[in-house]
């Protein structure tokens, strides 16, 4: 009995300690993002809390940095560029990545592991090496300092996300459904459009959102390949942080946090709908 009691106490202490530690780590993860939200409403051009802000004096707060984004043609152009590039790169990488994942999921795929390793490599190759290679390549074919060059570069970097997400989705896909459809007389295209696609669509959308986020956040290839007309949001933030740091950056950061929260919640919703009840993430 005494041993059991001691064990019980140990378990409680362990649990409490673990909870305290875990909450501290979660705080470390999330607090930096939370802190910049109030600071983006700072009425003064500082990156720290003013006395007026701490006393919740309304004069300490303002929307001037948000106004700055809307009124600054450079930021507006950057937002436009980011959207165009991210949408095109997402479309391309989703098509290429989905086709490849469909091929990889077939049981008779030759050299499967090797091909998979090649397709995922853009995720692990140091970005500076990829950007340097692309710099020479796109310059030599005249695509440096064009939107198309950056779209293609971002497509390259986005495809691993689509391949990973789609491969995971397809591994849980019951291939008997395809056989059933064709035995009922559907041709391969009909089978794909009416059976396969609706079932793998959530995974495909998740992959697309990952690719979108990757492009929307990418700065190194833009630094190497982009000219003054290809400045994107991260590119603007980059020079803002390095040169003339202003709280406008914080306002942009808050807007980006909202965008990424929306993307995250969408992906989680899709995942939950896709994962059968009771089946936990493996």
């Amino acid at each position: 009995m005494a041993a059991a009691k001691r064990r019980f106490e140990w378990a409680t202490i362990e649990k409490r300690f673990n909870a305290a530690y875990a909450i501290a780590v979660l705080f470390f993860l999330v607090a930096p993002l939370i802190v910049i939200i109030p600071l983006s409403f700072n009425a003064e051009p500082y990156f720290s809390f003013t006395t007026k802000m701490l006393t919740l004096n309304p004069e300490g707060f303002s929307l001037r940095w948000y106004q700055d984004i809307v009124e600054n043609p450079q930021w507006l152009q950057a937002i436009g560029n980011s959207l165009i590039i991210a949408i095109c790169a997402t479309a391309l990488s989703t098509v290429l990545g989905t086709l490849a994942a469909l091929g990889l999921a077939r049981s008779n795929m030759p050299f499967r592991d090797l091909i998979m390793a090649i397709l995922i490599s853009p995720l692990v190759v140091p970005i500076i090496i990829a950007a340097a290679g692309m710099y020479f390549f796109y310059s030599s074919i005249g695509l440096a300092q064009t939107h198309l060059g950056i779209i293609l570069a971002h497509t390259t970097l986005g495809t691993p996300f689509v391949v990973i997400t789609m491969t995971a989705t397809l591994s849980g896909f019951d291939r008997n459904l395809i056989k059933a459809a064709s035995s009922l007389g559907a041709d391969p295209l009909t089978t794909f459009m009416r059976v396969t696609l609706p079932l793998v669509a959530p995974g495909m959308i998740s992959g697309a959102l990952f690719a979108f986020a990757a492009s929307f956040d990418e700065v190194v290839t833009v630094l190497f390949l982009g000219g003054p007309d290809q400045r994107t949001i991260p590119r603007q933030m980059w020079s803002g942080i390095r040169e003339q740091i202003s709280p406008t950056i914080l306002a942009v950061a808050v807007l980006l946090i909202i965008v990424s929260s929306l993307l995250l919640l969408t992906v989680e919703k899709l995942r939950r709908r896709h994962t059968p009840q009771g089946a936990k993430a493996s």
Partner: peptide
Amino acid sequence: LILVLLPFWTSLLVRTTAWIVLLQTNGV
């Protein structure tokens, strides 16, 4: 899990900015 995934999805530049705000000499 969402609390872990939120920073995962947040722009790298945003997170780096956040650390500058927190850690700089006149920072939080």
